[in-house]
Amino acid sequence: MSVQPVRPVQSPIKRTQWTSIGGGRVPSAGQVLTYAVLIGLTIVVLAPVVWAVLSSFKTQSELAQRPPALLPSSLAPTNYTEALSSFDFGLYLQNSVIVTVGATLLTVVVNTMCAYGLAKYNFRGRDVLFLVVLGTIMIPLQLIFIPVYQMAAQLGLVNSLWGLIIPPAATPTGVFLLRQYMLGIPDDLIEAARIDGAGEFRIFARIVVPLCGAALAVVTIFSVMWRWNDFLWPLIISQDPEKYTLPVALAQFNSQLSVPFNYILAMSVVSMIPVVVIFLLLQRHIVRGIANTGFK
């Protein structure tokens, strides 16, 4: 692994076009089929979402109507205004944003570092550590809920936004993804930099990280949507209403005896918007980033 004949580095840098299976021109029958499949699936994917958005304007009795009507009787935003006014939406939005941004930054930084350590160094205990990481991916919070909470309580993280940012930050999934990705980066690149006298951290920050664009984007998106929709953990960590995130605030409507779906739908639509927007922005960025630099 360490000493190998130096191969010409296979060149990340100069690609300007997208790969596609066929590369060249695609026969038009295939093209048509592709569109047919994609449009068909788009309908399957979008129909329920669109229906949910439309339904968010319905009243409770309209929602109960059987068979359900496709369109709401009016587009008056009553559900939105009533649900929004019944709690401090601005504050919860702010909390959600702080937690999502903070946790994602932390996740990306610690995960990338850890993945690099595991992927590109040979050290005692590496394999065991990696297996532990891998092993813990499959522990859902549901299973170890109370021990985790006790730990957070001992460290004084309860009822603070830090408690929402730090404990879930070391996502094993992120480490795993990034490590798998980094395995593909040629060791020669790193060795070459060492020979040029670059420090270990510098190599990491200046050479490795820029090469991981797509994987980082995936981890970022993953973390954003995860933290944004996170419910169970914030529910026990945020005890004062001032510390609630959106999903927790939203769930207050869930009562014992009847659930006002009209409010829940309206609030879900509202809470969905920011993630979709982030994805739209990031998606463009990923596409452009990959197209320009053509990493790897």
Partner: peptide, 14 residues
């Protein structure tokens, strides 16, 4: 502190 009924016991336990 209003919590959803579904999660009330779980949260209290924790």
């Amino acid at each position: 502190q209003i919590v959803p009924f579904d999660n009330l016991e779980q949260r209290l336990q924790a």
